[in-house]
Amino acid sequence: MGYGLYLYGIFPLPGPQDLDLEGLDKQPVGAHTIDEFVFLYSEAQQERYLASRKNLLGHERVLEQAMEQGYRTLLPLQFGLIIENWNSVEQQLITPQGNALKQLFVKLDGKREVGVKVFWDQSAELETLMQEDEELRIKRDRHEGKPLSMDQVVQIGQAIEQAVTTRKESIIKVFQTNLNALAVEVAENDVLTDTMIYNAAYLIPWDAEAEFGEQVEQLDLQFEGRLKIRYNNFTAPYNFAQVKDRE
């Protein structure tokens, strides 16, 4: 068995049938049933898989291809999970968490995860802010070219920072107002870069994606030239059903 078995995700019975998928290290993907749970796995060729872009995409691709073939109810497992044998899965996961897994299957039945990431140009937003906020602009310009005390620097900086934060929150509110009502559940995640201002995942009915995608397009038009929106309309439901290995 080499380094053991690499696990990708869990499906309810009957689970994927006759899938012809290639996993990490170009290993064939198989399905193994334990009680009411079907695990997608391949033989691990490494003792530990680094979280490289290639490996992460390979892990995700296996799950997405299974979903594309109609096996939509899925609990994705965290990247890099390797087990020695199936007995360890039964003892460490199925026995203590079996009922919780079944509840997640019910929750995810007929639903999918989509994601929205929103980016802005902070310099452009700050310049627009100064054009629109006369009081703030006057406060800044009044001290231009003059030596400032530390208190003055802090005060002006805090005023600008607060105005930028308010501006950012007003944009986020528009996305929340237009998208949250279309979702069964929403997960707001940390922003990943300095230019990203919003990062959210939505659990929506599977057949409601067209309506949701249309709403995202409307927001894109509303903020055209001001924001960049990245919309992922097809992904494994990590934000709503991630099952982590037990220590």
Rank of each mutant, 00 (worst) to 15 (best):
G4F: 02
L5M: 14
Y6M: 10
Y6A: 11
L7V: 09
G9M: 11
G9H: 09
G9N: 07
F11V: 05
L13G: 03
P16H: 07
Q17Y: 09
D20W: 01
L21N: 07
E22P: 02
K26M: 02
V29M: 11
G30N: 00
A31N: 08
H32P: 03
H32A: 08
I34V: 15
V38K: 06
S42I: 03
A44W: 01
E47A: 11
Y49I: 08
A51Q: 13
R53T: 06
K54W: 03
K54M: 08
L56C: 01
L57T: 07
L57M: 14
L57H: 12
L57E: 12
G58Y: 02
V62K: 12
V62R: 10
L63E: 04
E64Y: 03
Q65V: 02
A66R: 03
M67F: 00
L74D: 00
L74R: 00
L75W: 08
Q78L: 05
Q78H: 12
G80D: 04
L81K: 04
I83A: 02
N85I: 02
W86F: 08
N87M: 10
S88H: 07
S88Y: 11
S88A: 15
E90I: 08
L93H: 08
P96H: 09
Q97C: 13
A100W: 10
Q103F: 00
F105C: 00
V106S: 09
V114S: 06
G115T: 12
V116K: 00
V116A: 05
K117S: 09
D121W: 07
Q122V: 15
Q122W: 06
E125W: 11
L126Y: 11
E127H: 13
T128Y: 07
T128F: 03
M130V: 14
D133Q: 15
E135P: 03
E135R: 13
R137G: 05
I138T: 15
K139I: 01
K139D: 12
R142V: 06
P147I: 08
L148A: 07
D151M: 07
Q155W: 02
G157Q: 13
Q162R: 14
A163K: 13
V164R: 13
T165A: 15
T165N: 15
T165S: 12
T166R: 12
T166K: 13
S170T: 15
I171E: 09
K173Q: 12
V174N: 03
F175G: 02
Q176S: 09
T177H: 12
T177S: 14
N178S: 15
L179I: 07
N180V: 04
A181P: 03
E185G: 01
V186F: 03
V186W: 04
A187V: 00
A187P: 04
E188P: 02
D194K: 14
T195W: 10
Y198E: 05
Y198R: 14
A200G: 01
I204H: 03
D207S: 07
A208C: 02
E209N: 14
E211A: 15
F212C: 06
Q215H: 08
Q215S: 13
V216M: 10
E217M: 09
Q218W: 04
L219H: 06
D220P: 06
L221C: 08
Q222F: 15
Q222W: 03
Q222P: 00
R226S: 14
L227K: 09
K228F: 09
I229M: 12
R230Q: 10
N232K: 10
F234A: 09
T235P: 02
P237V: 06
Y238E: 03
Y238V: 00
F240N: 01
Q242V: 11
K244D: 07
D245G: 04
R246F: 01
E247M: 04
